[in-house]
């Protein structure tokens, strides 16, 4: 009984991804599965669309910049929170992690209204600021965990040998955080690259991302090119998962000490 449910869960979890890949390869006009014949024509159609190419470029730029900034800011914040623990840092930590519990739709409406009030338009800066708010909590949580599990003896040894705080940060702490930083950077990239719930409130006609384009296309345009665009998002995130698995190990990345303790 339990075995059957486990197999069912595996099929259920992987099904939609597999289906959309197969459906994107159809030679016909219909979105429906099974595909009618096999072809790559809908990939040609979607890449020939200048709006899609613009959106893809925006998504890639936005996710790259968000990833670099979110991880840098989170690394500084994590060091402060773990190494200089005080009432003030604990309060700030709670604020920085709180978007994990606050619905992103509410954060999105707030930022939309705030930008509207100050007359800010959708561009790389305004979207990046929004994406930082929802991605920093994930990066910060990961980096706090990685930092808290680190042996402080090495830092003490470095300090007693006369290393300056700056040298300790760059030559002792950050190198040890390398895997945590990498894992955080990949997850932030994927979160940003794929976000709809917040981004839908921040884009404007003429400046949009791939997921938002898909969200809008689902209502208006019903051609399999939409599946081809979905597969591009899926491929990016599968690549991220494979990278994390190869570099860190997927189970170590999810559970601090492995699922079996």
């Amino acid at each position: 009984m339990m075995r059957v449910l486990v197999v069912l869960a595996v099929v259920f979890a992987t099904l939609p991804g597999v289906i959309v890949v197969l459906a994107s390869l159809t030679a016909g006009q219909s979105l429906a599965f099974p595909p009618q014949g096999l072809s790559l024509r809908w990939y040609e159609v979607i890449f020939a669309d200048p709006d899609f190419r613009d959106a893809l470029l925006t998504s890639l730029t936005l996710a790259t910049i968000t990833s670099l900034l979110a991880v840098s800011l989170s690394a500084l914040a994590a060091i402060s929170i773990v190494r200089y623990r005080s009432r003030a840092t604990a309060l700030i930590e709670a604020m920085l992690l709180s978007p994990l519990a606050v619905p992103h739709i509410v954060i999105g409406i707030g930022i939309l209204q705030l930008y509207g009030y100050f007359g800010l338009r959708a561009d790389l800066l305004t979207l990046t600021l929004g994406h930082l708010i929802i991605t920093i909590p994930f990066a910060l949580r990961m980096l706090i965990t990685s930092l808290a599990g680190m042996d402080r003896q090495i830092e003490h040894a470095a300090a007693s040998l006369g290393a300056t705080p700056r040298a300790i940060l760059f030559q002792v702490i950050l190198p040890q955080m390398k895997m945590g930083l990498l894992g955080a950077a990949i997850s932030v990239f994927i979160l940003s690259f794929d976000d709809v719930a917040l981004t839908v409130f921040l884009v404007q006609p003429g400046y949009t991302t791939v997921p938002i384009m898909l969200f809008g296309m689902a209502e208006n345009q019903v051609l399999p090119s939409i599946h081809a665009a979905s597969v591009i998002l899926l491929l990016a995130s599968w690549l991220g998962v494979i990278l994390i698995d190869r570099l860190i190990g997927f189970d170590r990345f999810l559970f601090r000490d492995g699922p079996s303790g």
Partner: peptide, 29 residues
């Protein structure tokens, strides 16, 4: 099993929704 069931945490949510649309929509199996 772990990879199959937990990797969707990171795999494009909107991309997967179109899988359901293909499977559930008119003309599908």
């Amino acid at each position: 099993v772990l990879m199959a069931v937990l990797s969707p945490l990171m795999v494009s949510a909107i991309g997967r929704i179109f899988g359901w649309i293909a499977l559930f929509g008119p003309g599908s199996v």
